[in-house]
Design a binder for these strands. Structure first.
Lengths: 140, 140
DNA sequence: AGCATTTCTAAGTATTTTAATAGGCATTAG
DNA sequence: CTAATGCCTATTAAAATACTTAGAAATGCT
């Protein structure tokens, strides 16, 4: 159970755009360089975001991407759903025993709550934290 | 972002054992038949559960598996972690920008809370629900 | 003792997903 | 005109998933 690079790099793009909101377009090249990612790969990820209307592109030299909407109006869920597809925690959940279904529903609801209540403005404004040092802290 | 059949079928096994707790061993064959799954595949999934000490096996005719501990002492997290591996929501999270890390941490915490607060006793005792008909309800 | 039942172990395989890479066309600022 | 950028399509290597196949080992029942 993982979030793939699609969702992750997509979030990276959107947070960068949120940070530069109102200050002109940001190129994928600059984002790729800052985060040490493949520009070509980011192109593929930004396409669904554009098709979904979350970003607008400005072509040509000194072009790039800008957010269509205010960062406070865009949730992490909007982005993750577009990039990871409509998230099915469990394939064929309707065939499962009600006992088990209960668990998936609980997990689904908790993830949903986080995704829909976290905006990219929240994330873009996030201050440096104290630095979590324990590697195990990243495991569920 | 999905829970694979490993975690799902593993939960199926454990809930069945919880339902039959104190009433002798349950064979994988019976579980496979009840839930229309491959017995051979279940064998592979039950091995890690045995190695982790969550179930005890009784070999030979009329054998099967029994829970090692009380169903109220076994959480969904115990099972999912053994079968899906220690869950890393995001690979290399420590390399990510703090802004983004914040999101993964929030999601991780919410999933963790559900997994660690749901026991297989809870699930085994779950009563038939009213039946959710909307297929979209299963998407996050 | 012998047989059916069941666990245990290892190997193989088709399919899908992931995470890119490659190559090139289209558009636009300076 | 040219460099910088977005846009589009195809290909691919590696890994994960979801099994299947084959058979050995243990045990209860008759």
């Amino acid at each position: 159970m993982k979030i793939s690079t699609k969702g992750r790099y997509g979030m990276t793009i959107m947070i960068e755009l949120a940070k530069n909101h109102g200050e002109g377009p940001v190129s994928l090249k600059s984002i790729a360089q800052t985060h040490n990612l493949s520009e070509h790969y980011l192109e593929q990820l930004v396409a669904p975001l554009r098709n979904a209307g979350f970003v607008r592109s400005i072509r040509g030299a000194y072009g790039g991407y800008v957010l269509t909407n205010e960062p406070s109006k865009v949730t992490a869920g909007d982005i993750i759903r577009v990039l990871e597809g409509p998230i099915v925690l469990v394939e064929g959940i309707e065939d499962e025993a009600p006992a088990q279904r209960e668990l998936w529903v609980r997990i689904r609801d908790s993830i949903k709550a986080v995704l829909d209540n976290t905006t990219i403005e929240d994330l873009a404004n996030h201050r440096e934290d104290t630095g979590i040092s324990d590697a195990n802290m990243f495991y569920i």
